[in-house]
């Protein structure tokens, strides 16, 4: 069959909401788009362990420490689910890591912001995981089978993440005036970067067209961002915190909140490496990978010696 015919059949399968599986025909551009999006997603889960890992040794109670450990371990797991799903597209784990280290593959910019206080653990779980869940719930219906299945599994686990974050920030919000101020400060710093997690406006998102046509993305950046805002506003009010947006207003006609303009200069600056922690996050990953090289070598030698495969 010639490529044109295969592409027509492929699009028919997509239009009929069939899932595409690893060994099925897919256009090269579909494969490349998935590798880019999925590896960025996997890297985000793994890099996302750093701001929270930072607080494991300083958690205020044993309960909080155990929960945070479990959450960070989950993020590692989520990264691994998505790496495995990405590998089914014919790229190796080593190549994926190499691209991250070379700066050719990105991760979510939100992790280039520092986690300064314990209240940030609350804001990250509540807002960052909340935004990620909004995105991932939508991606459960993505057209690529392995990606879709990894999203189903991740969504089941993420709701614990969001609830633990909300519990942390709610506790701070009803604590001493200083603690409440820390909670508000964390919300102030994480609100806008969380909205940026959904990416540029649809009108400024060049790859959205193909991604929607191929049903890799099922809903646009702006739709998902609006959904996140609509469900989060009342959660802030419930614990007495104020969302740092003076333009935020309920729009009866649209049945949604209107909100202020995102600082896109900041967004692009952080994407391009100008965020507060870009260098630190990547260097830490490189170092951990390098420091672990002897373990991988020893494991290969051990497996060879005992050939217990």
């Amino acid at each position: 069959m010639v490529v044109e015919e295969l592409e027509v059949l492929f699009q028919e399968r997509i239009d009929a909401n069939e899932k595409i599986e690893p060994r099925d025909y897919m256009p090269d551009a579909y494969r490349e788009h998935l590798i880019r999006q999925m590896s960025q997603h996997a890297h985000s889960e793994v890099i996302g362990m750093q701001p929270e890992g930072n607080w494991i040794t300083r958690a205020p109670s044993l309960r909080a420490k155990k929960i945070l450990l479990a959450k960070v371990q989950d993020e590692a797991g989520h990264g691994l689910y998505i790496y495995s799903a990405t590998e089914t597209l014919g790229i190796t784990r080593d190549e994926l890591i190499e691209k991250l280290h070379q700066g050719k593959a990105k991760y979510a910019s939100i992790f280039n912001y520092p986690a300064l206080t314990w209240a940030d653990m609350g804001a990250i779980g509540w807002l960052v995981d909340g935004a990620a869940i909004t995105n991932q719930v939508s991606l459960q219906k993505t057209s690529y089978g392995p990606y879709s299945r990894s999203m189903v599994k991740i969504c089941k686990e993420e709701s614990f993440h969001q609830r633990q974050g909300y519990e942390v920030i709610a506790a701070m919000a009803k604590g001493t005036p200083e603690q409440k101020e820390m909670a508000q400060d964390a919300l102030n710093r994480f609100w806008w970067p969380s909205l940026m997690m959904f990416g540029p406006h649809d009108s400024a998102s060049p790859r959205t067209g193909n991604a929607m046509k191929w049903k890799i993305k099922r809903e646009s950046n702006d739709v998902l961002r609006q959904r996140f805002i609509d469900k989060t506003v009342s959660q802030a009010a419930l614990i007495g915190l104020t969302i740092p947006d003076s333009d935020l207003k309920w729009n009866e006609e649209r049945g949604s909140y209107d909100f202020g303009e995102i600082d896109w200069d900041e967004f692009w600056s952080v994407v391009k490496g100008g965020g507060p922690c870009n260098l630190k996050r990547l260097n830490h990953h490189k170092k951990a990978h390098k420091d672990g090289a002897w373990v991988r070598k020893a494991a290969v030698a051990y497996a060879k010696k005992y050939s217990n495969k």
């Binding site: 797991g77 689910y81 495995s84 784990r93 990894s150 599994k153 494991a299 051990y302 497996a303």
Partner: peptide, 18 residues
């Protein structure tokens, strides 16, 4: 799903953790 490992024992432990 799948998992990376160097031998049987590590495969089963990684799979449990993951």
């Amino acid at each position: 799903g799948s998992v990376h490992a160097y031998d049987k024992e590590m495969a089963i432990q990684n799979a449990r953790d993951l």
